[in-house]
Design a protein around this nucleic acid. Structure first.
Lengths: 229, 229
DNA sequence: GCCTAGCCTTGACATAAATCAAATATTTCG
DNA sequence: CGAAATATTTGATTTATGTCAAGGCTAGGC
C-alpha cells in the first residue's frame, strides 16, 4: 500500500479530520500497515506498547483469559475504530491480547507521532481525550450491566443498543450479530449455552426472531419492557 | 478559603505540578470550592457536567443503582484524587452519582479552564490523557476481576493490591479498609454477607486477621496462593 | 457438492453466591 | 451518656447461571 493511500485513510478518520495535510503527512510517516489473518494474535497480554492501532477493514477482539483458560472478550473492534490508545499513554504493557476474528488490515500509528501531534495541535489532543473518554464511558456501561443486570437484560440491552447504532437497521428492527454467538456471549459475560437459551426464550415469547446471525426485533416496546425489572 | 489557598492546593496536585504560576492562577480563577457533608449527593446520575472535581479532604463514592434500588459502587475517591474528567470531555450527563462518605472539601475546576489549559499547555494535556488512561486501565482490571475471578479471589486481590498501594502498610502487612465493609463489598461486586463470610473463612484458614477495619495479612504467600486457581 | 471441524442447541445436573431473617455489634448524634 | 440508627455476622434457603454431555447444524475447503 502506498504512503499516499495511508495518508488518505488517516485523513478520513474522525481523529485526523480537520488536521492540516502536512500534519497528517507527518503522522503517515510514522504509520505502518499490517495484515492480520483470521486467528492471528496482533499483540499478547504483557507486550509493550509502541503506538495505537486503526482497523481499516476486518475485525478484532480484545480479550483476556484466566489461568484455567476461560476467555473473556472485552471489546470488539471493527473498521474505522481504534484501539490501544490508553495503554500507549500509560507506558504499561497491554492488559489484554488482540486477535483477528477475520482477515484484517490495520494501521499502527507510532507513539512518537502521537506525542508530537499533541504537542503541535490542541484540537488533536482534544480528540484523543474525547476518544479515551468515550471508551471509558462504554466501559462504565459494561460494569453497570455486569453488576446490576441479569443475563436476559444484558442480551436485550445489547440487541436494543445495536439496533440503534446503525440507522439502517433501526428502520427494519434488524440486528446482525457482528461475530459468532460464542464471541458475543463472552462479550456479554455469559456462557454460550445461556446465550442460546436466552435467545430461544425471547423467540418463544414472540419478541424476536433469530435466523443464524440475523435477529429481527418483532416488538421493540415489549422487548424493552421484558428487560425492565 | 482564600483564592491563594486554592492556588496552593492546585499547585500540589500532580496534574498541575510543573505548570507556570500564572497558568495555575488562571485555573484557580475558574475553580470553586464546595463542602459536602456526609451523605450529601454532589451530583446525580443524569446531571450535566461543567467541569471536574478534586477531593481535598474527605471521601466520596461514585455509584449507580438499579431500578430495584440495588446500589453498585464503581469507585472510591480520596484526598488528592480527581473525578469526573471523562464525562466533562464527552459533554454527556453523568452516568453515575457521587455521594460523600464523609464530610469533604472539594474543588470544582470548570470545563472552560481545562479546555483553555489544553489549548495552551501540551504538558497539561498529556497529564489529562495519562489520568484518563490510568482510570481506564483500572476499569479494565475491574472488568477482568468481575468476569474471571470468584468472590474470594476478588477479596484477596483487593487485600493484596491495597497492601502494596501504601508503602507503610506494606511493611506491616496491614490493610486499613478505606470505607465500611458494605461499601467495599459493593465495590468488589459482592453482597455484604458474602464479604463477611469470605473474611471469616480467610481468618479461619489463618491467612489474615480482621479487627474492625484493620486487616492484618498473616501469610502473604499463602494468601496469594489461596487466590490462585 | 460433500465432508470435516467448529458452532450451536438442548437437556440434566451442579454450585457459587444472593437473598431472607434474626441476633449482635458498632456508630452516630441528640 | 444512651438511644436509635446503621453495620456486621451467622444460619437456612433459593436461584440464576455455569458446567458437562451429546446430537444436529453450518460453513468453508478440497
Amino acid at each position: 500500500m502506498s504512503s499516499t493511500k495511508v495518508h488518505a485513510i488517516l485523513a478520513n478518520l474522525p481523529l485526523f479530520k480537520e488536521m492540516e495535510p502536512d500534519e497528517i503527512e507527518r503522522i503517515a510517516q510514522n504509520t505502518r500497515e499490517l495484515h492480520a489473518t483470521r486467528g492471528e494474535i496482533v499483540f499478547q497480554r504483557g507486550d509493550p506498547s509502541h503506538g495505537f492501532y486503526v482497523v481499516v477493514h476486518g475485525q478484532l477482539k480484545l480479550a483476556f483469559s484466566s489461568p484455567q483458560g476461560v476467555e473473556k472478550v472485552v471489546h470488539l473492534v471493527g473498521p474505522g475504530k481504534t484501539f490501544g490508545e490508553a495503554v500507549m499513554f500509560m507506558g504499561m504493557p497491554y492488559p489484554v491480547y488482540a486477535q483477528a476474528l477475520a482477515d484484517s488490515l490495520l494501521l499502527h500509528i507510532s507513539r512518537t507521532a502521537v506525542f508530537d501531534g499533541i504537542e503541535r495541535d490542541p484540537v488533536f489532543c482534544r480528540k484523543m481525550l474525547a476518544g479515551l473518554s468515550s471508551r471509558l464511558h462504554s466501559l462504565i456501561g459494561d460494569v453497570e450491566a455486569y453488576s446490576l443486570r441479569s443475563c436476559t437484560q444484558r442480551v436485550i440491552g445489547y440487541l436494543l443498543q445495536h439496533d440503534c447504532d446503525n440507522p439502517d437497521d433501526c428502520k427494519d428492527l434488524h440486528v446482525n450479530l457482528p461475530a459468532s454467538k460464542t464471541v458475543i456471549a463472552s462479550r456479554l459475560n455469559i456462557s454460550p449455552e445461556t446465550f442460546s437459551r436466552v435467545l430461544h426464550d425471547l423467540s418463544a415469547a414472540g419478541l424476536i426472531n433469530v435466523k443464524g446471525k440475523d435477529v429481527t426485533i418483532l416488538d421493540m416496546g415489549k422487548l424493552r419492557a421484558y428487560g425492565q425489572q
